[in-house]
Amino acid sequence: MTELLFLIKLAVAIVFVIGLSLLAENVSPKVAGILSGYPTGSAITLFFFGLEVSPDYAAKSAVYNMIGLTAALSFVYIYYIASKYFVKLNILLSSLSAILGYFIIVWLLHLIEINIFLAISIPIAFALLYIYLFREIKNITIETKAKLNFKILFVRAFFAALIILLITSVPKFVGPNWAGLFSAFPTTLFPLMLIIHYTYSKEHVHTVIKNVPIGMFSLIIYSLTVSIVYPLFGIYLGTLISFGTATLYLLVYSKTKSLINNRKRVVELKKRTH
């Protein structure tokens, strides 16, 4: 059973990280940034919490996962700030700064007496804050794509596999509160950021970062749904329901954004004709 779980975690990590990196290269870093907020790493972690411990344990962890998203959002913000100002060893120092910031914020968060209202309102407030702080970042696309080979794909997969395996081992050593906070670690986003930054430039990874808070709302919705449905329906049906609610948010966001952009184009066209 242990070996099977290891292989499942490894396979899922490979699919998500490679998929997001290819999406960034062939569609745009903007889309990859939004979808990186989709419940991938946290969904895997919470699912295995439920499978290896219990659905109730995973449900309680999901509440702390929501509050832990504050640290995940701060992770990308700290990485962004550090990458702007560090010239030498840019990727290494940006990564270390973001990881350190994440664990400091997680430590501060564990001191708070959490309830469902705080678990929802705090990450939403931070997501809105970072959307505002990232407003000046330009969305750019990748013009010249890197040539892929087995070595590159292996390196891309390795980071996600290692991080996910470490984080999903947390509940064996700590309680659900800490486990939930750690489950919010950007397990697929962080490797994606490293791949884009190393392969292309900090401007490209900044495009990913700019759009993370937008997608993070789907993860907040996912974790909230898990906290409700896992004890009621179990981890399998509960996971499907939770993915459904998270996907619905992204569809509504996409449709709303499209309508707003169309309206802007109509207004601009009217101004030109008058």
Rank of each mutant, 00 (worst) to 15 (best):
H204S: 13
Y236C: 00
N149D: 14
T239R: 08
E203S: 10
H197N: 11
F182C: 10
N177C: 05
V170H: 07
L240N: 02
L248M: 15
P176F: 15
V226S: 06
M193I: 14
S201W: 07
G234K: 08
T207D: 01
E203V: 07
L248K: 10
N149E: 01
W178T: 15
L248I: 14
V212R: 03
Y198A: 13
I214E: 14
V212T: 11
S242T: 02
F190G: 07
F173K: 11
I164M: 05
S183E: 08
L194T: 03
K255C: 08
I220S: 04
M193E: 10
T168P: 06
T168R: 01
I241H: 02
L251K: 09
P213T: 00
A160Y: 08
L148P: 06
S218F: 03
T188M: 10
A157F: 00
V205N: 01
L148Y: 14
L224Y: 15
T188C: 05
K202R: 15
T168G: 04
L237K: 11
I163M: 13
T168S: 13
S218L: 09
I209Q: 03
S201D: 14
S169Q: 13
L153H: 01
L232F: 10
P213D: 07
Y222P: 06
N211L: 12
S169V: 08
L192P: 06
Y236K: 06
V174S: 15
T245V: 09
L250D: 12
I241C: 07
L192F: 04
G175W: 10
V155F: 12
G238R: 01
I196D: 02
